[in-house]
Write a protein that binds this DNA or RNA. Structure first.
Lengths: 196, 196
DNA sequence: GAATTCATGTAACTTGTTACATGATTTA
DNA sequence: TAAATCATGTAACAAGTTACATGAATTC
């Protein structure tokens, strides 16, 4: 359900094409909700069928005609209803590919896992740098709303910082633990060699 | 793809039924990868069609017959291949319902959002307490492997701690920012009232 | 006597991914 | 002249959710 509501949420700022919505997504919401182009176009079609958005065609020359979507009154209501029903965080399904692989880490050489943690740290640090330069696309947003909107966007960006920093700390800690584990195993082996 | 590989990964510990797999999931992997019963049974069927697992029926009385799945050699290879190909973390799609709603927070009263942050803190603290008492289901795991396995499980649990703590810190910070924002707005209003 | 555990799924639906198709305009 | 931007999607497939169906045995 959330993608449709994210689209409705963005359409509150004003009429937009699927293309506009996609580019706004990729500059802001993508940090906590990703969507592909095909999904956006499909869901816009569904939203229109459901009467939550309306559209008009703006003819263009040399380019495909624009199909500009507007949120309807019903759409606004559906959006606010959704927004008022925060689900319990336990119910939000979590999927974390990297952790799943770490869980099964015993099936690959420890050095390979260590390498993956190092890569994780580098990639996360890179993401952190990008987050510093983040600029929400504000073209669609009426200037009088912008200041207030920025407050909420800032809260989500802050979460980006905090969780990336936490993830980096975790991965670095894991590397230390791997090193300690391997050092210990070397000692154990040396012991058993000398005593056996 | 990941759910199938998670199932293969668990089947490395020994033959199991769909029911067993589900209960192991719900005690360990669910913290970073969730799966429903129907999904597990379906994917087991697909894995069998693909030859990555085999199964045998164990008749029971008074209960449905057990269908016990075993990983095949091809399955083991597919699992290790998957495990060796960690994807870039940027490519792992992230979906965070709570953040999506915070992003659109301007559309509900600030007190309501504040309340949701408080609820978030409480729920996350509760999860943190549960994580303390976590016990990976180890019945299926051969004792000689257990110690080594625990090392990797420990790394994922540590991530649970760190990210929950980070999330709690973030939400508390957000509550402070909301209070500051509202105090500032009150002042501005008072100013404009006194001067206007 | 009620709830939980054990044990299997199917069916319908929604959501998300990947690959494909088209083509002018603008910028580097 | 190559790449990026603008602008639309469709089709096929994979993955995830929700609701339903069955029923004995065990534990509270």
């Amino acid at each position: 359900m959330s993608l449709k509501h994210a689209l409705l949420g963005l359409l509150n700022y004003g009429p937009m094409t699927g293309y506009d919505l996609k580019s706004i997504f990729d500059k802001s919401i993508v940090h906590f909700w990703s969507a592909s182009t095909s999904q956006i176009y499909r869901d816009l079609g569904v939203l229109e069928e459901e009467g939550l958005v309306t559209s008009r065609i703006e003819p263009q020359e040399g380019r495909p005609d624009k199909k500009i979507y507007m949120i309807s009154e019903t759409g606004r209501e559906a959006f606010v209803t959704w927004l008022n029903r925060f689900p319990p965080i336990l119910e939000s399904p979590s999927r974390h590919d990297f952790l799943l692989r770490v869980f099964f880490g015993s099936h690959i050489p420890m050095e390979d896992l260590r390498f993956q943690f190092q890569r994780f740290v580098k990639e996360a640090q890179e993401m952190l740098r990008n987050l510093n330069g983040i600029a929400m696309k504000t073209e669609g947003v009426p200037p009088d709303l912008l200041e207030r909107e920025k407050f909420f966007w800032g809260l989500t960006i802050k979460m980006g910082f905090i969780s990336l920093e936490a993830a980096i700390g975790w991965a670095q800690e894991c590397i230390k633990e791997i090193d300690a584990y391997q050092a210990q195993n070397l000692n154990t082996m040396a012991d058993s060699t000398s005593t056996g």
